[in-house]
């Protein structure tokens, strides 16, 4: 099982590396989105706005970057995976891949965003934890929703329609968590949000693990 997950995850990265233009496209997407934020807002002094805008951009990065994880697979290749791989290893490897991709993009996003729009965060390590946990949540939810949408009528629009409402729990917790990090409230206040976020992430992964086999067979 573990071997299968590792092999499948490596396959995802190799596929990604072969299509470097897609990777560059995503990078450009991040930079140009932040640049638009900068052009329209300049420096953001208001902290809740800074935080909200950061996470809204994060959501769109996630939808754009990860929605394709199942949508790009064509029917024949899916059939091939079906014969050689365990569906549970498949979904976990996709989530792993989404997590790494999303974390990388988030860090780049945070860097560019800080340079252009400013960085009022007081407790930076805690904010990084919030970004990591939030990215994990975004990645796992969008991966699962992408699997569902790929079975319906292959379009990216459906991913956002199905995904945004499901993202709200994770997003609202993350925004509160990162806001307490910005205010430097300390773990005593923010700890409960971190725990809830970890719990939600585990729940999403567990549900994906249990439900994906049913999605898989056609």
């Amino acid at each position: 099982m573990l071997d299968a997950i590792i092999t499948l995850t490596r396959k995802e990265f190799r596929l990604e590396w072969r299509q470097r233009s897609v990777l560059g496209g995503m990078l450009l997407y991040v930079i140009s989105t932040v640049f638009i934020c900068y052009l329209s807002m300049r420096r953001i002094v208001d902290q809740p706005t800074w935080n909200a805008l950061f996470w809204i951009v994060q959501v769109f990065i996630a939808v754009n970057g990860i929605a394709k994880s199942f949508l790009q697979e064509n029917r024949g290749r899916m059939l091939y995976y079906y014969t050689i791989a365990d569906p549970r290893a498949m979904i976990l490897s996709k989530i792993m891949y989404g997590l790494v991709l999303m974390t990388t993009l988030s860090i780049i996003h945070l860097g560019v965003y800080s340079i252009l729009v400013g960085n009022p965060v007081q407790d930076f390590p805690m904010f990084l934890v919030a970004v990591l946990l939030g990215s994990l949540g975004l990645a796992s939810v969008i991966t699962m929703v992408s699997a569902i949408a790929s079975k319906a009528s292959n379009n990216v629009g459906l991913v956002s329609i199905l995904g945004f409402p499901v993202l709200i729990p994770i997003l609202m917790t993350t925004i509160r968590f990162s806001k307490s990090a910005m205010d430097g409230l300390g773990w005593f206040v923010a700890g409960k949000f971190a725990l809830l976020l970890i719990g939600l992430n585990l729940l999403v992964s567990a549900l994906a693990y249990l439900l994906f086999p049913y999605l898989w067979k056609d």
Partner: peptide, 8 residues
């Protein structure tokens, strides 16, 4: 998937 998350 969605409703379990919502309930929690």
């Amino acid at each position: 998937f969605a409703f379990t998350l919502m309930l929690v």
